[in-house]
Nucleic acid binder design. Structure first.
Lengths: 189, 189
DNA sequence: TCCGGTTTTGAATGATCGGTCAAATAACAT
DNA sequence: ATGTTATTTGACCGATCATTCAAAACCGGA
């Protein structure tokens, strides 16, 4: 039997994800990735192919682990409406252990216009966020909502969320943040 | 008397602006800028200092010429409320002669977190957009709005606009676009 | 016609980029 | 011990990056 891998893929992807999240795809060099992952160049290429493939894996890791976990955690033990509000509050407040904003939205700006495969991953992720909002809305018992209204409102919430993510990345103190939060509340009211 | 400059600064900035707008700061090389401006390397450095300074000039050109012109044109000959709606329609539809999205918002994502000077320019530009919406709202005669309500609604519109700009850059056909447009209408109604 | 001052030109520079590879290393089977 | 196989290692590669600079080109005045 040969020598076994001495690293955990998930740990490496987690480190790469944070680097890409904070500095963008083009702003992160292979030298940076060597540093943050602890692996050396050759192992990185042997295990993940090249920079773009490593990014794809990191983006999928973000989407499947971080983003899903984020939404699941917020939903747990909350009324549907509160889950939506808590989602926006959490984004506005920001997790100090994580870079600001959202890797999917960052990548939508930087890469989606020039890379179809990445654009598809992002589109899929966006659709799942919209579905999250739609599910929450469908389970609200405060008043009846037609399927059309649910779909429409979910899309608006998604748009507001993206706007909020951009604002918080550009300037964590932006006064627009509070206005968006109360708009979300009144949209659900 | 010495040899005079054989280029127009505004023309060069316009070309550089489009390149940065389409491909981002890091995605645009000096070689690209040489190509799109028609100037050669040395003249570019002699006239504008370096890449970052050229970008700053291009960003300010975008803000002072393109963005201001865009809003002014939409406002002209329109009721205040129609001007706001027309702004969102124009963003959603997109000008085929220009790159999608908005250079200010793109730069907010790519550079603002790591460059304070750029962050300030962006903040200022964002504030002027908010003021544009606030002015339109203040001049609406359909119903009375308190200053607080105007400020709040202007910020929400700004958030929706940013969301729309991201959506249109990532995917021009996104179904969220229509939902955002009708949300704007109902927000003004 | 020559000169002083300015711009243009494009070759050259060193740094950094993403990517490669042969050699060293480690675990197992014989 | 020895051989086999997979992984690790870091030096190395050509390409490209932003930037510089000396020389050529150009103009107006003397």
């Amino acid at each position: 039997m040969p020598w076994e891998k001495c690293y955990e893929e998930a740990v490496v992807l987690e480190a790469a994800m944070r680097a890409f999240w904070e500095k963008g795809y083009q702003g992160t060099s292979m030298a940076d990735l060597v540093e943050v992952t602890g692996l050396n160049r050759g192992s990185l290429y042997a295990g993940f192919g090249n920079k773009r493939e490593l990014f794809l894996r990191a983006l999928q890791h973000y989407d499947q682990s971080y983003r899903v976990g984020f939404l699941t955690r917020l939903r747990k033990d909350r009324e549907p409406k509160d889950a939506i509000i808590a989602t926006f509050d959490a984004i506005a407040q920001g997790d100090t252990t994580m870079p600001g904003g959202c890797l999917v939205v960052n990548s939508a700006m930087e890469l989606a216009p020039h890379d179809d495969e990445i654009a598809r991953i992002i589109e899929n992720s966006m659709a799942e966020v919209e579905a999250f909002f739609a599910n929450c809305l469908a389970e609200c018992e405060d008043r009846v909502r037609s399927p059309a209204e649910i779909s429409e409102t979910a899309k608006v919430l998604q748009g507001l969320m993206v706007g909020l993510l951009v604002m918080t990345r550009a300037n964590r103190e932006s006064p627009s943040i509070g206005a968006i939060l109360s708009q979300v509340r009144s949209l659900l009211g």
